[in-house]
Amino acid sequence: MTRSSPNSPDWPAAIFRVLKAGRTRQVAYVPDAGHSHLIRSAIADPDIEDVVLTTEEEGVALACGAWLGGQRAVLLMQSSGVGNCINMFSLLQAADFPFFALVTMRGEYAEFNPWQGPMGKATRGALELMGIQVLRVSRPEDVEDVVRAGFDAAFDAGGKVAVLLGQNLVGRKEWEREQ
């Protein structure tokens, strides 16, 4: 299944430009349609270790290990994955690690699957409860600037930041395969 993004073919490439300009060396992810372009770009880049996770909280710990070793890691996940991370976020606060995540949203806009609703509606609150600053972007033309702002806040100022990529940006999931 894929998601359509008819009006915004360029924003995933804009995100990757920010990650590369910021010397990101590890990209951890749980497979996600909304992040598919970024994931492909990370896999194709010889200077980036792409790390596929079984569950998102591994990526929180991995990012802290990368920082301990002198590298910048970015975590890509869907809003449901934020829920999986909650206790592991303690590590960010307890040791004051920089942290940057990109979260594709579900359950908030033209959602077909009601099972995505509870976590999607709680995503911002859950992040903020755990001390993570939340930025949000809904328009393709804003993506590069907002992602760069969050990235810099994390790695230049030691912040813990998540950028939510709105479901209206990511596009509707296509449930019917074209014949």
Binding site: V51, L53, A63
Partner: peptide, 22 residues
Amino acid sequence: NYYLWGAMGGAAPLGLGLALAQ
């Protein structure tokens, strides 16, 4: 030595991030 006092389940993936970085 990097001592974890919490983050249960995180030791191995933290070690992975460190190993990839070093």
